[in-house]
Amino acid sequence: MAKDKIINVTLKVWRQKNAESKGHFETYDAKDVNVNMSFLEMLDVVNEDLILAGKSPIAFDHDCREGICGTCGAMVNGYAHGPDKAVTLCQVHMRSFKNGETIVIEPFRAKAFPVIKDLAVDRRSMDRIIAKGGYISVKTGNAPDAHATPVQKKASDLAMDAAACVGCGACVAACPNASASLFVGAKVSHMGLLPQGQPERKQRVQNMVWQMDSEGFGNCSNAYQCEAACPKEISVDNIARMNRDINRCGN
């Protein structure tokens, strides 16, 4: 069997003890990195060395490590979720980097995403937006028949596209204004496109947008960085839809 390619990289990692402390970059050498490792596995190996040396390991968010939960994320060389297109950070592999490369790793930065420690950020601001309208109110009981409520194919497709949002916050991280418009647009669209979402459609968009504004996210300047950074390739059409929905319902 052919031998796996091995590279050495230098990491410049943002280290910050807690939300209150200032934070700074530290440089680490990651030696003998198998290019088939995932980016997070590479960090695991660096962390093992740090622990053995009696130092505090680099804190970073992760959970499923298969690109579906939306927990992971950091700015890698200036890109949210690293340089690869349409993947979460856990799906980036070391083959995307060159031997001898210096990799700069920073947390997602936004006022609404305070740093907890190192690369781990507090994204509960997004949960609070969801709590304002990311649901539909239905009578509980037996599951209705699948064909009880007809849904147009087009609406169903678009709703599924919007529902692909895993709420990772890359849109906020990549936005020059740290706006959450793509996230909120996706959530508003996901339910607003379906018949089940109609009764609460107006109050949903109003309440979610107001919550977004009050969390300290920036305003949308239509720079479309969010769409390009999104690991699920959520379209800014969802922002357009949110903008239209706001026009139907007041402020």
Binding site: W14, G78, V104, R109, K111, N177, G218
Partner: peptide
């Protein structure tokens, strides 16, 4: 909304 700027 982004007081702490990115280095890169």
């Amino acid at each position: 909304a982004r007081k702490d700027r990115y280095a890169v």
